[in-house]
Amino acid sequence: MTNAATLSGVIPPVCTPLTPDHEVDTASLTRLVDHLLDGGVDGLFILGSSSEVAFLPDGHRRTVLDTVIGHVAGQVPVLAGVIDMTAPRVVDHVRVAVEAGANGLVATAPFYTRTHPAEIAIHFRTIAARSDVPVYAYDLPVSVHSKLSADLLLELADEGVLAGLKDSSGDEGGLREVLLRRRERDLSSFAVLTGSELTVDSALWMGADGVVPGLGNVDPHGYVRLYQAASRGDWDAARTEQERLFQLFQLVHVGGPHMGRSSSALGAFKAALYLRGVIAHPTTALPQIPLDADDIARVKDHLSKAALI
């Protein structure tokens, strides 16, 4: 992958299977990669939010990089998250990911520190200057507390700093603005990917290039069908598939009020993969609260209704 124009389609953010003692379960991870490739995905994104990157020590990150990139062996592009608080820390992750053979890097704005848009621009310029592969911005204001504006993103795209965007902001109007400004500035090589599982059909209709869906770990075939229907202009089929996936996505709420929303969602994805026989354990990283037996039983009900087990 040499430019953003090739980055499109379904690119799931790969979960990180863990053993009961919280080591990376590499056997399960390779099975998960095969499950996604068998589903027809167009690329993989490792070490993002669905990968529990914020919880993984550096050694675990390197194990994920080496396992996935080695197993994929060039079949599809592999994007690696280099997510950390500030540019000097991110640059360390850049070096490791590039050495491991990542085809592209994904970074958020700085976090913990309070930053100005001019400092966010310096952050991305610093990362890109240290990378021999394309850099993609990850717009995640719920965690980073900074919203990446269309003007900033496309200014950096025009400079050659950013190759694309993963938009997990939940701001559909903001996504449309990026797509409109991209067209106005003739920056068609700047890839725009939605991170929403629930509005993929509308994002593709607006002109987005693809989707990075956490639920795609559980049902990659469904998102591939959705993307293919949209690609051929069959919007009725795309909407039907999106509505089916919308119903399946309700499994993320099984944890209810006794754990955080992220713990519930990531736990549900892993429980679904465990129930489908893809990974050996549904373990989530500490200090997340694990799903209990009743929660997992509700995940199983959702999978049964979706005819996935």
Rank of each mutant, 00 (worst) to 15 (best):
12 P>E: 00
13 P>G: 03
15 C>Q: 11
17 P>S: 12
17 P>R: 14
23 E>S: 15
33 V>R: 13
44 L>C: 08
49 S>W: 00
49 S>I: 00
60 H>F: 06
63 T>I: 08
67 T>D: 07
69 I>K: 04
70 G>V: 12
78 V>C: 07
82 V>T: 08
91 V>I: 10
95 R>A: 00
103 N>I: 00
104 G>I: 01
106 V>A: 09
107 A>Q: 06
124 F>A: 06
125 R>E: 03
128 A>G: 09
129 A>Y: 02
136 Y>V: 13
142 V>Q: 11
143 S>N: 09
153 L>A: 11
156 L>M: 13
163 A>H: 06
163 A>S: 07
163 A>Q: 11
165 L>E: 02
166 K>P: 02
168 S>H: 08
171 D>M: 11
173 G>I: 14
176 R>L: 11
178 V>Q: 06
179 L>V: 01
181 R>T: 15
183 R>D: 14
188 S>D: 12
196 S>Q: 05
200 V>Q: 01
202 S>P: 08
211 V>A: 10
212 V>K: 07
218 V>T: 13
220 P>G: 00
225 R>K: 03
226 L>V: 11
230 A>S: 08
231 S>V: 04
240 T>D: 08
243 E>F: 13
244 R>C: 03
246 F>L: 15
258 H>C: 14
259 M>I: 10
260 G>E: 03
262 S>D: 05
263 S>L: 03
268 A>H: 15
269 F>I: 12
270 K>M: 09
271 A>G: 04
274 Y>G: 00
274 Y>I: 00
276 R>L: 11
278 V>Q: 11
280 A>E: 06
280 A>Q: 07
283 T>K: 02
283 T>N: 04
290 P>N: 12
297 A>V: 04
302 H>L: 14
306 A>Q: 15
307 A>M: 13
309 I>R: 12
